[in-house]
Design a protein around this nucleic acid. Sequence first.
DNA 1: CGTAAGGTTGATCTGAGTCAAGGTTCGTGG
DNA 2: CCACGAACCTTGACTCAGATCAACCTTACG
Lengths: 253, 253
Amino acid sequence: MKSISLPLNNHSSSRKFLDLCVNNIPETNSYQARTSHRIFHKKQALYSVGDTFEGIFILRSGSAKSFITTIGGEEHITKFFYPGDLLGIDGFDAHSHAQNLHFLETSSVYFLKKSDINGLVKTSDDFRDCLLQSISHAMVCDMSMMMYLSMCSSEQRLARFILDLSMQFAERGLSAKDLLLSMSRTEIANYLGMAIETVSRILSNFQQRGIVDVKHRSLTILNFETLNRCAPNGLSSHVSRIEKSPKKEAVCH
Amino acid sequence: MKSISLPLNNHSSSRKFLDLCVNNIPETNSYQARTSHRIFHKKQALYSVGDTFEGIFILRSGSAKSFITTIGGEEHITKFFYPGDLLGIDGFDAHSHAQNLHFLETSSVYFLKKSDINGLVKTSDDFRDCLLQSISHAMVCDMSMMMYLSMCSSEQRLARFILDLSMQFAERGLSAKDLLLSMSRTEIANYLGMAIETVSRILSNFQQRGIVDVKHRSLTILNFETLNRCAPNGLSSHVSRIEKSPKKEAVCH
DNA sequence: CGTAAGGTTGATCTGAGTCAAGGTTCGTGG
DNA sequence: CCACGAACCTTGACTCAGATCAACCTTACG
């Protein structure tokens, strides 16, 4: 499978992040150079729940999923990752990882150990801003996901998923319409909180309506217009604010 | 309504966080002392989507909710906040807030402006660790919430909600069994992604089964045992790990 | 080449949403 | 302090989106 990797001409914040790390950490010895880049294969784990937190990773190429497991053994996929994404932020909490991370295909990561993070945060304003921005952005995305899960129909969630994927691909310099899914139907269903049969049915339905063309794991978006109408409404941003609820009027003491 | 406020003998990470801020920022003038603490009343907004991000807040007393709004005008509550919680982290992303924050009752917040955060991150290792830990913890909670939303029945979600509330109260030195809800049924339903009628029905049902005693907004947990059995299984942690999937075996280059 | 994993499709069932009606509490102004 | 309207909450009846069960097809891999 052709994997995604971060193109050099990508100036998004994730790319900037990677640059900042690579250019600011003094790689005095070749040992560090060797260990800061690692390659993993499909189904391999980067970390698992309970592993000691040693630092974060930046995905350079390939794709991955993070998931949590209940005591009963059920898994729930919490996120899919693409090049430029930060992996392992969950480890800051208890100094050990709270999630599992597995790769979906052959992938490479850049390792940024805790001491390097601490150093960079002090010395580089850009790095600090980038790190906080990146984490904050991830949280904002999680909030949207929670909204989709709690307010949208299965069709809306799947439409949103495809459109989000398309955006992710486009941001990384790939086609926005020809997508190569790196996850199985089961994984999509699990992530979106629906039965695998439902994913299959909705995809077939989209196909019949001429919205997409799906064959195995390659998906072509034929009609963005209609797909967008299937997806839930976007979030309101400051642009669309008209009237506002009771404004801040603090009482100082 | 009797509001919750952070007790002085609470040595949790949130309390530590607040201490770190108060003790490390030189309050050279009385102006800052006055503006760093603010009191808000029920239904007042701390910030809204699109507001310029000027810093984060620490909730000292009371309670609050954050929510996002779709273009269509629908609201979705993303989180409830209690004393010690960090408010406004969403603003780091685009330098403007991505969510709205309203108070549920009279509350007070401590304001920590951007420049202070940047300064503290450089000078105090404790502050840096606390900030990252706090954000990371919030993300881990969001992940669980996503799992509950996508895999659990309404009854399970509501049971989990009550137990989580109970824990929040206990952590803040209040009774773990006598809860005073600061949010309406509508807000609970919205947060948990279900119809208001469903919340009402499940609460009545819990009452009939002798699990809780609900009257208006005061809720007493009568049977933790049974309530726990209603809630979804907890997450597996490193303690319960037995066998592990393919371990990390990086190929270095 | 055979078996397992992954994927599709149809039939049936049910949890929870929607609609409807009535009760309770709160807040404001007379 | 009471009254009236609005907001909040509860309960019942009906409906439907999507889960579950079942059978079958397709692709990947040792």
